[in-house]
Computed example of a mutant assay.
Amino acid sequence: MTTDEHVDEQVDEQVDEQVDRTPGQLRLTGYVLAQLALGIVALVCAILTVVGAALMVVWVGTLLLAVSLPLTRLIADAHRRMAADVLGLDAPRPYRALPDHPWQKLLTVARDPMTYRDLLWCVWACTLGWVYALICLLELLVVVTWPLWWWGLGYQMRLRSHVDLWFLATSHTERLEKRVAVLTETRADAVDTAAAELRRLERDLHDGPQARLVALSMSLGLAEQLLATDPDGARRLVGDARETTSTAIGELRSVVRGIHPPVLADRGLVGAVQALALDMAVPVTVTADLDGRPPAPVESAVYFGVAECLANIGKHAGSSSASIALTHDGERLRATVADDGVGGADPDAGTGMLGLRRRLAAFDGTMTVSSPTGGPTEVVLEVPCDLSSPRTTPSSEPG
C-alpha cells in the first residue's frame, strides 16, 4: 500500500468514526426545531434579565431575576445536552452548587461566572444562533438526497454545537482549576497517610522489636554476671536470650512485610495476591490477565487494597467462598474482589476502607462497592497505569 492510499484509509476511518457518533437525521431535525422555539424563549430571558438587573433597587427586579435566571439555565441545559449529543462529547453541568436559603441561592447564581456566559449565549441564541437554526431548517426542507442532508445538516449542526459549547461548557481554565483542587486534596491525603504509616511503624518497632532487644540486653547482662558464680543460671539466661532473639526477628519480619511484602517484590502482584488467598480460611479463586507488571507504587497500593478486602471478608462477610480478578484494559489496572457473604458493607463506615480510598486517590484511582443486604459483595479497585516488565507468575491459579 502506498503512502497516499494509507493516508486516504486513515481519513476514511476518521470520517466513519465521526459518522458513528453523530445522531440520526430525525433527531437532528428535532434539535433544529427545538433551537428555533427555544431561541424565542432565550430572547425573553435576556430581556427579563437585563430589565431585572436594572430594577434591582426595587423588589420587582428581584422577582424578574428569580424567574429569568432559572429559566435561562433550563434552556441552556437543553442546548448543552443537544450540542454534546451532536458532537459525541461529555459536557457536564458546570454551575456552582446552590444553598437552601432562597436569598443565598439568588446571590450564588448572581456570582456564578456561568450565569454571565449564559446571558451572552442567550444573545447569540436569539440572534445569529436563531438565524443559523433557521438556515438549517430551510436546508432540511430543500434537501432531497441523503448525502446532501447528511453533509449539510450534520456539518451545520456540529458547527452550531461548537459555538454552544464554547458558551455553555466548562472552559479549559476552569477544568484546570478543578484538577488542581483535586490534586491538592489527594496530595494532602497522601501526606496524611504517609504520616500515619510512619507513626504505625514507629509504634510497632517500639512495642515489638525494641522491647525484645531491651530484654535481650538485660538477659545477656545478667548471664555475664552469673557466668563465674552460677554457670547453670547463666546458661538458662542465654537460652532465654536466644528465644527472645528469635521472637524479635519474627516481629521485625512482620514490620517489614507491612512496609513492602517481599513476596510482592519477588513474585509480582499476581503471586502476592495468590499468597494472600492461600492464607484465607475460605476458598478464594484468583484469576488474572496481566501482560506485565504495573509500577511499584501502584502495585503496592492495589496489593494492600486487596489485602484489606480479604481481611473484611474474613471478619464480617460470613461467606463460603470468594474470588479475585486482576485485569488491565490497556489504560487501567482493575482488581475485583467478590464474596457470597451477607452483604451490607458500607465503605464509609470503617477507617480501613476510607484509608484504602485515600491511598488509591493518590494515583487517581477509584474504589466502588456493591453490597446489597443479603449479598453478594463486590469491590472494584481501579488505578490508571501502564504495564511494563513481563509477568513472572502464572496468570491464574485457584486459591
Rank of each mutant, 00 (worst) to 15 (best):
G52P: 07
W59T: 15
G330E: 11
R21P: 04
A133W: 01
R391S: 10
D100T: 02
M367Q: 07
R179L: 11
L141E: 14
V7D: 11
W124K: 01
L198K: 02
S396K: 06
R179K: 10
L227I: 08
Y31D: 15
E177R: 10
T2C: 08
W103Y: 02
V191Q: 13
G352A: 13
T229A: 11
L98S: 11
T193D: 15
L137W: 07
L278K: 09
A345F: 13
G154I: 01
T336I: 07
L269Q: 07
D279K: 04
E9A: 15
T108G: 09
V273L: 03
D8M: 15
A345S: 12
A215D: 11
L74C: 06
I75K: 00
A335W: 06
S323Q: 12
L269K: 04
A322F: 06
W124S: 05
G152P: 04
R267W: 07
A53M: 01
T245A: 12
T373F: 00
A196I: 00
V11Q: 13
L310R: 08
L387E: 10
G343C: 09
L237H: 11
T377W: 01
R160E: 11
R199N: 06
F304P: 13
L387K: 09
W103A: 10
G314M: 15
H172Q: 04
P376H: 01
Q156L: 13
L356V: 09
D339V: 04
W150P: 05
L278N: 08
L148Q: 07
H6W: 06
V50M: 14
P209W: 00
L222D: 04
D279P: 03
L213Q: 09
P297R: 00
V284I: 05
R332K: 10
E202W: 12
H260F: 03
C122G: 02
A110N: 08
V109T: 08
A228N: 08
L165K: 02
R332I: 10
G352I: 02
G341K: 01
